[in-house]
């Protein structure tokens, strides 16, 4: 029932937005097509502006991962995290989640395949994946796009919030489903 609702919302929300926005505009006699094109041009400009930032992050992350440095980092964090009963399998996800959205999704998919979506690790990975976002990527692309160089406390707060998200994920998954 709930799955059907989530499925229906993700299937219907975008078409519904189109119908409502375009219908409303036509009703109010807006020059819909030309106004659409005006807005669309802004998209090209933004894309050109964010390109260097996206390349810089992808390259740094690519080197970090391909060299094996990420696995080493995850392994070195393991003793600390095992004190808090954080399963070792979840570590790569916690390291990569703030850095890369598609990278995190790939790790989550792998965890779901290997341990099953209804296991403790599977539920934990799902909750962590859904409840935080790619801090490092968002900060550099969004600030970069408008030319901000001094980001003040944004990175610090963003990473602390990710950590809090992980802690809360562990807490809530344990409360709701136990550790099996």
């Amino acid at each position: 029932m709930f799955v059907a609702a989530v499925d229906a919302i993700s299937r219907w929300s975008i078409p519904l937005i189109f119908v409502i926005v375009l219908g409303y505009a036509l009703w109010h006699r807006v020059d819909v097509y030309n106004v659409f094109l005006d807005g669309a041009r802004e998209g090209i400009d933004l894309a050109v502006r964010i390109l260097p930032y996206v390349v810089s992050i992808f390259v740094a992350l690519g080197i970090f991962r391909a060299s094996g440095a990420m696995d080493s980092l995850a392994a070195s964090l393991h003793p600390v995290l095992s004190i808090f009963h954080v399963p070792a399998e979840i570590l790569p996800l916690m390291v990569i989640r703030p850095l890369s959205g598609s990278g995190a999704l790939a790790i989550t998919a792998e965890i779901l395949r290997r341990f099953g979506p209804d296991s403790y690790v599977g539920r934990l990975a799902s909750t962590m994946q859904g409840s935080t976002d790619t801090t490092f990527y968002i900060l550099s692309v969004y600030f970069g796009a408008v030319g901000i160089r001094k980001i003040r406390h944004a990175m610090l707060v963003g990473l602390c919030a990710d950590l809090m998200g992980f802690i809360l994920s562990i807490l809530f998954v344990r409360l709701a489903f136990g550790v099996k």
Binding site: F2, V3, V6, D7, I9, S10, L105, T108, A109, L112, R113, G116, P117, D118, G122, R123, S126, T127, M128, Q129, G130, S131, T132, G165, L168, S169, L171, F172, V173, A176, F177
Partner: peptide, 27 residues
């Protein structure tokens, strides 16, 4: 969290959307 629910369903979960509550609470 539509993407993750879809991934869980694809991985054969009995209840793909059971993590919606924990995800919302944590975020």
């Amino acid at each position: 969290p539509a993407t993750i629910v879809a991934y869980r369903a694809a991985a054969g979960s009995v209840n793909p959307s059971e993590i919606v509550g924990t995800t919302l609470a944590a975020s």
